[in-house]
Design a protein around this nucleic acid. Structure first.
Lengths: 151, 151
DNA sequence: AAGAATTTAGAATATTTATTCAGATAATAT
DNA sequence: ATATTATCTGAATAAATATTCTAAATTCTT
């Protein structure tokens, strides 16, 4: 809780969770959490994290992560899990299965990964997976791998 | 070339095409194009367009559209493709078909547009289309048109 | 371990951006 | 047509943010 890495993580978290309109505001929140820094440093941190103030719909400015960074960073690789392939698009994941298997696998996921997975919708060979907020792609991938490998 | 609407369009275009580091820079470019305005107005314009300065990888700041606005710009028009209608919402597209046709068309899309389409899920007359990352709405629309017209 | 080089950060400040205030212009209603 | 209200804009200024300059702390090299 005292090094730069921790601080950056804390900043990112706060920006995602709270509604922050300027750096001084964020500075205060960080102070409450025990991070002691100046506006100059915060400005540099935000630059490094690529966080910026963006206008919202109500005519205010709010700090936010650039959209693309919410999910992961890279352009989403396809991951093979057994006979299936997993790929992400935005907040969603799609698992392609062998024909006819989607329903069964989706049921397994629903049952065994509900902490991370909000819900699934299965077609014949495709499962749409809606992750819960707060889980990143790596986590989701790992959890789904576990579930599928145990089937 | 003299009203606000035109100016906003010009600003948006410049931000997409050029590399702009601050408002004065943009102001100059606009002046060259015949738009005469002050920094105050530009600031307001940018707010309205939700354009902001975001840090790039090289340690500079560049003006950019919020990611979500790149996709199209307008609130997503419904596009008619044969007997079907296509509309976007966020990263997703929905294709409405005649009753009973969704499954068949979805299968065609899966087969013939998989480079751009991560997956589809079909009901009776509705197909949920999950595009791959990196494809914009126009590209998706065009690819889907091709596929459907060849059925 | 000592020195060189890099990273980190604060204070002060420069730069940039947003807003206030006032006046103009356009739109709507009476 | 005139009053009323809303929209738009510039000048000046306030507010917010980035950077310069300096020094301390850390990491790397030999």
């Amino acid at each position: 809780m005292k090094n730069k890495t921790d601080r950056l993580r804390a900043i990112k978290e706060m920006v995602i969770q709270q509604s922050i309109g300027n750096q001084d505001e964020l500075l205060l929140l960080l102070k409450e959490k025990g991070y002691h820094l100046t506006q100059a440093t915060l400005s540099r941190d935000l630059k490094q994290l690529k966080i910026t103030k963006i206008p919202n719909d109500v005519g205010e400015y709010r700090y936010a992560l650039p959209h693309s960074l919410y999910a992961s960073g890279k352009p989403s690789e396809t991951k093979i899990i057994g006979n299936n392939s997993l790929e992400f698009s935005g907040q969603l994941a799609v698992l392609k299965t062998r024909s006819g298997y989607a329903g069964g696998i989706a049921a397994e996921i629903d049952e065994r990964a509900s902490s991370a997975i909000l819900g699934t919708i299965a077609g014949d060979d495709t499962i749409l997976i809606i992750p819960r907020e707060g889980f990143n792609r790596e986590e989701i991938t790992s959890i789904l791998s576990d579930v599928i490998e145990k089937i």
